[in-house]
Design a protein around this nucleic acid. Structure first.
Lengths: 248, 248
DNA sequence: ACTGCGATTATGTATATACATATTGAGATG
DNA sequence: CATCTCAATATGTATATACATAATCGCAGT
């Protein structure tokens, strides 16, 4: 995976040498003192500068390379990487947590639950090759008295058989799955749509009103587990994503 | 920064020991063989299992801890971490690249450019404490003949003085800034809105049509650099974010 | 000039070793 | 019985060393 990651550097406290080298170098890169494309000192030069062993410098530089701040070339040295595309970290919380963070009481409601053989559309959503049983759920999440989000979910019963025995009256499928299924990958798609009459009814808004839709597909060890679509009324929701290449 | 990161593991090729330990352990965690909360073998046990030195095991475990898959506790050992909130990586590309990825010709247009003393609203958007000169830009990005995105941007001239001399007729402010200013942090806010008449005119869509708005605030070494708002017509745009705790 | 080869160089990976530090658990003390 | 102390233990950090590997440079030979 080629991406720009993050580096954690503890501030305050007597820094370890490793952390000092990390923060020193990233500071120099981010401040622009060391420009993109420029070669940074060789390991043996940094070894002299910090008066430490090459292993220590090497570990720090390897970490900076993994974080995407520098690029290392054998025989040539290490170079400040030109900024590529921005990679922001989007934290996607459980809806209960989001609602409670707003200081509003949270309520969950299961609207419908169907067990069926997967339709072609189901298979497309889950990226499932063969037909098999799925569980289709529709739920609503409330913040105070107002509907906050509509949830439409498909669960691949071939991957999570126990879900067939759960009514999802008391617990939302999200937290239920999180507690049970270790997931190895997820893909999110975020877009804006106009409310159709189903959305309008579910969220108690006008037909045509703008909504934010977040769809998530989750895999566990190569098997599709679930596809979920959350629809939020525009006023109720903003997603926040952050990127900090250094200094958590 | 407390988040779940990613681990890069090369597949194929004769794996280095380090990578083999990494992928072995993350596989066991992600498959559920080692459940959350469970203690994983001590370093000295893994040393025996892989017949290698403790340093090698230690490096791998430290990396898994940084990636958030395990938690290390002195004297007690290392434990599989319970999944927290999902952290997805949202890659935010240059608009030219996005358009060209669609196979459409890209065109850029500068609509307006004003240099002014920052208004209260400007300062709020930039999170600027004191008043100072700013550059306000409005641009449009086209995919083929159709407007693809509207860009409204503020540049803090106190942080990027050279921007005052640039007309931004030939080059979009995004790539211009990227090439010049190393950024150290960014915050994105994503939401859905209904097109007002300005948006409708800019994007050639109906008033009230749903749009996706992506706002980004960028800092460089503690100083606010720019605030930009991109508005996309709903049909034209979907953001994709991915998370893979292992196996890039 | 052009080509190929070998020496040089910087990074990549692994080892053995050493000592620091946080935490636990057992035994001693009040 | 509570608490205090100390030794045991697992991780944290750093060192010196060794050899592998990839890329580059310069030199020799055509």
């Amino acid at each position: 995976m080629s991406m720009i990651g993050t580096i954690d550097v503890d501030v305050g406290e007597p820094l370890s040498l490793h952390q000092r080298i990390l923060s020193d170098i990233s500071e120099r890169i981010l401040s622009g003192a060391w420009a993109p494309g420029q070669r940074i000192p060789f390991e043996h030069e940094l070894t002299a500068e910090y008066n430490c062993s090459r292993m220590t410098v090497n570990k720090a530089l390897s970490q900076l390379a993994k974080a995407g701040l520098i690029e290392r070339r054998r025989r040539s040295g290490s170079f400040v990487r030109r900024p590529q595309s921005q990679a922001a970290v989007l934290e996607i919380h459980d809806i209960r947590i989001e609602v409670e963070a707003l200081g509003l009481p949270y309520r969950y409601e299961r609207v419908a639950r169907h067990r069926r053989r997967s339709s072609a559309e189901d298979r497309a959503l889950l990226e499932l090759a063969a037909a098999g049983p799925v569980l289709a759920l529709e739920c609503r999440h409330f913040a105070g008295k107002r509907p906050f989000a509509r949830e439409q979910r498909l669960i691949n019963l071939a991957a999570v058989a126990e879900a067939a025995d759960e009514e999802f009256h008391a617990i939302a499928p999200g937290p239920w799955l999180i507690a049970r299924v270790p997931w190895s990958a997820a893909e999110h798609r975020i877009r804006a749509v106009a409310a159709d009459r189903h959305i309008a009814a579910a969220l108690d808004i006008a037909v045509g009103a703008p909504c934010l839709v977040v769809e998530r597909r989750t895999w566990s060890a190569e098997h599709p587990v679930t596809h979920v679509r959350f629809t939020y009324a525009a006023e109720s929701h903003t997603l926040v994503a952050r990127f900090t290449p250094s200094q958590g």
